[in-house]
Design a protein around this nucleic acid. Structure first.
Length: 266
DNA sequence: GCGACAG
DNA sequence: ATCTTGTCGC
């Protein structure tokens, strides 16, 4: 009888992974390094932000089947949307076999390889629509070592990425970054769509931001720098992609990879 | 030791 | 992540 815990990584394996993250993080760029520009205009005292030359935004995700054994299979998806219309112009999927369990803080070691494959395939086959920035379903710098899946993928692919999480990952940097404090502050400060508050720890470090997508969405999303982009720009791009709580690139990646599972596997 | 814990 | 119908509200 093979149960799932015989595939659990050892402590030394996790320490090795942590070293890999710290090593790769040396290449991390947390400022805007983009091939499009941002302009901020004043319109009756209101800030109007425009991204000039931004045409293609990507979204990546993995969807899993009902797993019963330790042999998990999943579908990885890469979606490209036209900006600013948010029309889907490309989708691709790949099936993945996964043996390692999910471990908070080490998500990239489960998911990054198939996502990287999809990106490299697109760059080879259709370089003209390769996304100028990719929104990733998972955190970037909002991570114990400031190097979550979004940053990991961004560095390996050398592409600008933004991390978006649906749940808060607690960071060990003082009381302000505990689950309880973040929940309370979200309720207190995020009153309308577009409201944000910075997730700053006791050290002064800013790890990401809690963002209210729309007026009618109560639960925030958690935005952080992936790679080659600033937190401010990340938040602004995410907000421009929000027709619902989850920004369209990752929302479409999620919807379409699930649909793929329904039609091809189930 | 206990609790927390992206997807 | 995923199992799942109805249901409350705009």
């Amino acid at each position: 009888m093979n149960s799932n815990y015989d595939n659990n990584p050892s402590i030394t394996q996790m320490e090795e992974w942590a070293r890999v993250q710290t090593e790769l993080k040396l290449n991390l760029i947390e400022t805007d390094d983009l091939d499009f520009t941002k302009t901020i205009k004043e319109d009756n005292g209101e800030q109007v932000i425009e991204f000039n030359g931004l045409n293609y935004i990507g979204g990546v995700d993995l969807s899993f089947e009902n797993n019963e054994n330790n042999e998990e299979s999943a579908i990885a998806s890469l979606i490209v949307l036209k900006y600013p219309s948010l029309e889907v112009i490309y989708e691709n999927f790949s099936s993945v076999k996964l043996e390692l369990p999910y471990i908070a803080g080490f998500l990239a070691f489960r998911e990054v390889a198939p996502l990287l494959d999809l990106l490299q395939n697109l760059k080879k086959m259709k370089p003209n629509i390769f996304p100028q920035v990719i929104i990733v379903d998972g955190n970037g710098t909002l991570h114990p070592r400031r190097f979550g899946l979004a940053s990991h993928l961004g560095v390996l692919a050398n592409v600008p990425t933004i991390g978006v999480g649906k749940n808060f990952l607690q960071i060990d940097d003082g009381e302000t970054l505990t689950m309880a404090h973040v929940k309370a502050t979200v309720k207190e400060k995020l009153k309308k769509g577009g409201d944000t508050y910075l997730l700053q720890g006791q050290s002064g470090m800013i790890w990401g931001a809690a963002v209210r997508s729309l007026d009618h969405t109560t639960n925030p999303i958690f935005v952080s720098v992936g790679h080659r982009i600033s937190l401010e720009t990340s938040i602004q791009i995410v907000l421009k992609c929000c027709r619902y709580r989850i920004p369209e690139p990752t929302r479409q990646a999620d919807i379409r990879s699930r649909e793929y599972i329904r039609n091809h596997i189930s």
